[in-house]
């Protein structure tokens, strides 16, 4: 399995994502925003403030050269993971439905965060059990997931909700913390699994998440 972490100007969780993949012996490289993606099996859109998050979070990043052929990539069935700012970019790209608004309390929130695993039938969560509670930290100011009723109905019908917050920190519709596309190969989530990679740093639930991806490619 090969992985690429896209680095936009303003990305700042790129290193953390790289570190966890490297730790799990995945062949991983950084992809600068104006390079093209190649045949990586997993593309990570990392957290941060791409292009300063000016205008709207992720609005400008979606025009980056690295994302030019992201749709073909997705159609081929390769995996795309958007964490935090990456999730925002994926909604701007319309690769995932909905939008991310300012946190309900208007403040940036950095804290540990318990999530309920809702869907284990994805390449990202196959090593979890449905209903597992995992701790992935959150660190965002605009993580308040919004989707209209109709869209929410679709998400539920297609089992696209992957993670829900145990205690909704930001006002997200239906406590949604992470969703996949219909096909299940694109995951966007506000919490940071890559930060939960070491007991010394407060927990390692994130390792199970990335090991799921590795396990998925072993089976394929």
């Amino acid at each position: 399995m090969k992985a690429g972490v896209i680095v936009f100007p303003g990305s700042n969780c790129d290193i953390d994502a790289y570190k966890v993949l490297e730790k799990l012996n995945v062949e991983v490289k950084y992809i600068w925003h104006d390079e093209k993606i190649d045949d990586e099996d997993l593309i990570v859109l990392p957290g941060g403030f791409s292009y300063g998050d000016y205008l709207r979070c992720g609005a400008i990043a979606r025009f980056a050269k690295a994302l030019e052929n992201i749709n073909e990539h997705i159609e081929k069935g390769k995996l795309v993971l958007g964490i935090c700012n990456g999730f925002q970019i994926l909604t701007e790209l319309k690769a995932l439905p909905g939008a991310l608004l300012r946190n309900k309390n208007l403040n940036f929130i950095c804290s540990d965060c318990n999530l309920i695993v809702e869907n284990t039938d994805t390449p990202f969560t196959n090593l979890f059990k449905k209903g597992d509670i995992v701790n992935f930290p959150i660190a965002h100011g605009e993580g308040n997931y919004y989707i209209d009723d109709e869209g929410l109905g679709e998400l539920i019908k297609n089992n696209q909700i992957v993670f829900r917050y145990q205690n909704n920190p930001n006002g997200s519709v239906a406590d949604i913390a992470g969703i996949v596309n219909k096909r299940g190969n694109v995951l966007g989530m506000m919490p940071h699994p890559e930060r939960a990679q070491d007991k010394l740093l407060g927990g390692e639930d994130g390792l199970v998440f990335f090991k799921s991806v590795i396990a998925y490619f072993k089976e394929v």
């Binding site: 700042n12 969780c13 290193i15 953390d16 570190k19 957290g47 403040n107 940036f108 929130i109 950095c110 804290s111 930290p137 660190a139 940071h192 890559e194 930060r195 990679q197 070491d198 010394l200 740093l201 407060g202």
Partner: peptide
Amino acid sequence: VYRQYDYMVRTNTIVRPGGDAAVVA
């Protein structure tokens, strides 16, 4: 106050805010 600061980015923060001193790897 400190929950508005990203105190974990770069995954080196061993002891977080709220204690006596922070520890960063």
